[in-house]
Design a protein around this nucleic acid. Structure first.
Length: 100
DNA sequence: ATAGTGACTATAG
DNA sequence: GCTATAGCCACTA
């Protein structure tokens, strides 16, 4: 476990209910040490082990690129269950963006 | 140790 | 708005 990974996991764990954040913000909050891509990799790699709410992490467009066809449907469901409005399949970042 | 890979972002057309 | 390209660097095998 690297420090950066711990930092990312910590940030993800602190995302409040009903909010989302972006990979870039996580990267910046973790020290901008690597890039958004690494945040995505770490998040995905650790989501299984640490049970992270990866559905609360979206890209700058407010959406996610589904790894599986089912993934984005699950994300939509989970976000909707948390009172996050989806517009055109995207999260309204102006309203739901959370910054650590 | 080395090589391959990627749930992204910024820029350009 | 969209697609294409380059840069990024930790994780996994």
């Amino acid at each position: 476990m690297q420090a950066f990974t711990r930092h990312v996991i910590s940030i993800i764990s602190n995302i409040p209910h009903g909010k989302v954040t972006t990979y870039g913000i996580i990267a910046a909050s973790a020290g901008n040490h690597c890039g958004a891509r690494q945040v995505a990799r770490i998040l995905h790699s650790s989501s299984g082990k640490y049970n992270l709410p990866w559905h609360r992490v979206v890209n700058v467009k407010g959406e996610i690129s589904p790894r599986k066809s089912m993934s984005h449907l699950t994300q939509k469901q989970l976000l909707k269950a948390e009172d996050v409005s989806l517009i055109n399949g995207r999260v309204d970042l102006e309203q739901f963006l959370w910054i650590p």
